[in-house]
């Protein structure tokens, strides 16, 4: 199957290694991975800030670039949710466009959802030894029902022990521009998350959305925790590049 890979703007600029890890996983699952070169942002920052017009322009750009693939996969629940759940809202006044959004949305998946439920990847290319704890990012969890998929993939790795934190499904406080506009509040929410992470003694916090991971890492480091590892699930499943 031909998979169009949407890197996401955050992975593109902040953590390219997550993008390459995701590609290795998709290839391990037997996919032909294509990365359209003109891709940029899914439009979520504008959409969630009330800028509907520019978000719609980005939705149209996405459609043009990704509509032809069998599947579209993203290493982010919130960007995948943007496409699946919110593009139809942006295009609801144009029936033809709406139909296209719904069609491509149905073929668009968050990475772990795709690996577990569509590609049915059984053997992870990476290795990981030790305990980790998993943070459920909001959009993936509540818009796409991503909860069991990452845990099932992680559990299939022989060396992995999952120490569940309390309130793993509570928001970490990132929320895109919220994290800057309401910094104090966002920091407190991140702090609560850090305490729950520390209580697991896992040593590694894993998640499926880079925004949340940067938020959590930023608070951990400011608190003086330089040892807890913060990893995207693609990095854990695919292992580090040789």
């Amino acid at each position: 199957m031909r998979v169009g890979f949407f890197v996401t703007c955050l992975v593109d600029s902040m953590r390219p290694r997550i993008g390459f890890a995701a590609i290795r996983l998709l290839e391990a699952a037997g996919c032909e991975v294509i990365v359209p070169e003109q891709q940029t942002c899914c439009g979520q920052p504008g959409y969630n800030s009330g800028d509907r017009k520019s978000a719609k322009a980005m939705a149209l750009k996405f459609l043009a670039e990704f509509e032809a693939f069998d599947y579209v996969v993203l290493p982010s629940g919130s960007c995948a949710g943007m496409i699946r759940v919110h593009y139809p809202d942006l295009c609801k006044d144009d029936p033809a466009l709406l139909a296209r959004c719904i069609a491509v949305g149905a073929r668009t998946f968050e990475l772990t959802d795709f690996l577990a439920n569509i590609a049915k990847l059984k053997k992870m290319p990476g290795t990981f030894q030790g305990a980790l704890t998993y943070h459920d990012s909001c959009s993936g969890l509540r818009e796409l029902d991503v909860y069991k998929q990452p845990r099932a993939l992680l559990a299939s790795m022989p060396g992995v022990a999952i120490n569940e934190m309390v309130e793993s499904t509570t928001c970490c406080g990132f929320g895109g521009t919220f994290s800057v506009k309401y910094g104090e509040l966002s920091t407190r929410m991140a702090d609560n998350k850090c305490q729950h992470i520390a209580a697991t003694h896992a040593g590694t916090i894993v998640g499926g959305d880079l925004g949340c991971l940067l938020n959590i890492e930023g608070r951990l480091r400011r608190n003086g925790d330089s040892t807890t590892r913060v990893m995207h699930i693609a990095e854990v499943l695919a292992g580090t590049e040789k």
């Binding site: 593109d12 070169e37 966002s186 930023g218 480091r221 913060v230």
Partner: peptide, 20 residues
Amino acid sequence: GWTDGRDFPAPEGLTFREIY
């Protein structure tokens, strides 16, 4: 708003598209 309470983890240095 971010850096008053958190550090900002630095990017790796190259973008995905450059490496790709």
